[in-house]
Design a binder for these strands. Structure first.
Lengths: 155, 155
DNA sequence: GCTTGACTTCAAGCGAGCTTGAAGTTGCAC
DNA sequence: GTGCAACTTCAAGCTCGCTTGAAGTCAAGC
């Protein structure tokens, strides 16, 4: 087989291999997350490296990044070649901190919940679920809405 | 002071004490999450218990429930009185399972990330971040987009 | 050369969870 | 009894991450 025949991916191929819809890929391209070349007829052709970029974007979303943040993260990695250990480690460690923060938030919530099971109170003045001493950090999706601004002491 | 003067809350008071915008409270009411009585002039007046309901909704969101799910959870608790230990324990334990699942997901992701730090590969054929053996559960916001449908082996 | 499926663009829509704005009314303090 | 902030409804708008549809073009197998 010709080595060039499979050198570039059509959007359908990229979709099949990345598990995303073609519409999503066009959307990513519109946002500048991925790039393509065009055939004479105007169809998109993607480099193999785009497959890696797309996988990276999916991973970033799992970590809780928006597509905008994913683009910023991608900008710190080389566009065409595989990132080296140092480059990747930097990104991975930042992601780990994020994940750790998300886990910490969830654990704090679980602790509060556990404390409440026994009492059955849901008392506004006493329940720790309603009156967390700490203002949980706004890290990651799923932790957007927090119990900051808890109701004040009430007679 | 008259004991009835502060018996009901205006929407502004409820907003101030719950930390939500009045627009959000009207929206919740439209969705049937909270309820109000009206003055002769048509203004909303909330029972004190609504404060508890709103706090519950916020807590539910933190656990990753949609407003629709929060409404379902509220339906299992008494509308007007403080829930008793048994009633609350049922809800709290369900939430704990949810939180545990979310934490487990995040920890799996972190483990994969850790394995990748050393190699710096981001190789599509080898990297565990791109080729997770498991299909992470779709539990909670922030875990919506997963690496299912990872790219197949490539020469 | 023709058919057919994969592609193209552009505009609109969706769903969740609200916010904003306009235009009008109410309630309370002085 | 008046002034003004706080309330009312209704419609539209917004963000995020896409999907859907219409109308048309390209690429490749027979």
């Amino acid at each position: 087989m010709s080595p060039n025949a499979h050198d570039r991916l059509t959007i359908g191929e990229l979709a099949a291999r990345s598990g995303l819809a073609t519409s999503a890929l066009r959307y990513y391209e519109e946002l500048g997350l991925i790039h393509s070349e065009r055939t004479a007829g105007g169809q998109r052709r993607y480099k193999r490296a785009t497959l890696r970029r797309v996988a990276f974007i999916r991973a970033a979303q799992q970590v809780g990044l928006t597509l905008d943040e994913a683009r910023a993260a991608l900008a710190e990695l080389p566009a065409e070649r595989t990132p080296n250990a140092t480059e990747w480690a930097q990104v991975a460690r930042a992601w780990q901190r994020r994940i750790d923060a998300q886990i910490a938030d969830l654990e704090r919530l679980r602790t509060r919940l556990t404390g409440c099971i026994g009492c059955g109170c849901l008392s506004l003045t006493r329940c720790r679920l309603y009156n967390p001493a700490d203002t949980a950090a706004q890290s990651g999706p799923g932790a957007r809405y927090l119990l900051e601004g808890a109701p004040p002491e009430q007679s």
